[in-house]
Design a protein around this nucleic acid. Structure first.
Lengths: 150, 150
DNA sequence: CTAATATCAGGACAACTGATATAT
DNA sequence: CATATATCAGTTTTCCTGATATTA
């Protein structure tokens, strides 16, 4: 029993879900409108972060990890290769695969852009949120990553 | 002064920004893959929530509030009208404008879908996060809304 | 005449589905 | 032959820019 309590909790979760969905669209729009040419898309950043965390990987394994189709990761990787941030080398053990890894230029770039703090989202986070609020956001991002990491 | 401290804080905000960007893409992908026909898009939900919170409004004012172009809000509103969730009435004082408001069917629908809890995101939030963690997420959503609300 | 509202038309982008070549 | 990787081609979705009619 506790049907009433369950309902209250379901309703709360449902409202949170709605707010999250609504926020998602707005945040994405803001990021696009504030983005400059040469900026990376969320997918591209996600791939870079994963390569940095887990080391070299193939296109297919990256697609699986990101929850994308192998076909969808192709243009993402192509853009990163074009920017000189990742490089692919043929796998000597399996001729089908290409091992992707971060280039030295990528680490330099990451350092630089981190220090430059030109990025709109970074500046806004610093300007509008206290350090304590940023901490809360870090926690929340971890929680949300648990939801999407299947 | 405090250059080192500033750098550390900027770096932290920058990493948070990157994580947020990466999360954004994955969350959006998950929502799309789990969505059923007839589900509402983030933009549509955002418009409904705003009409519910602020009352009737025109297409242009909604577009401004959402941070969209007036042209971009048209298909969103058309879809909601088509679903019978919002209705437009001509403004007697200004012939250019159409006043949009929620229909009775919308409130019934909101109640029902809130109770049905069929939604993937709602179920996942309940299944994977404790009530305390959901509270943290509610706070974080409020913080993020402050960033996008110009 | 200038400004604001609503909307049409075409385009860019990111991810999708389906099909194909190659290697295991 | 069955499976896995990588990729080509075409489609869908969502929002964009540009242009136009109407009303204030």
């Amino acid at each position: 029993m506790h049907a009433a309590l369950d309902d209250r909790q379901a309703s709360r979760a449902s409202m949170l879900a709605q707010d999250l969905r609504a926020l998602l669209g707005k945040l994405k729009r803001r990021l696009r409108e504030q983005s400059h040419v040469g900026d990376l898309t969320p997918s591209q950043i996600s791939v870079l972060l994963r390569l940095e965390k887990d080391g070299p990987a193939t296109a297919s394994s990256l697609a699986r990890a990101e929850g994308m189709r192998p076909q969808s990761i192709v243009p993402v990787i192509a853009a990163l290769e074009n920017a000189g941030l990742v490089a692919g080398a043929p796998d000597p053990a399996d001729g089908r695969q290409t091992i992707l890894s971060l280039t030295k230029a990528c680490r330099t770039w990451a350092e630089k852009s981190r220090a430059a703090r030109q990025d709109w989202l970074t500046r806004t986070l610093q300007a509008r949120l206290s350090l304590q609020e940023q901490d809360k956001l870090v926690e929340a991002v971890a929680l949300l990553n648990r939801l999407v990491d299947d």
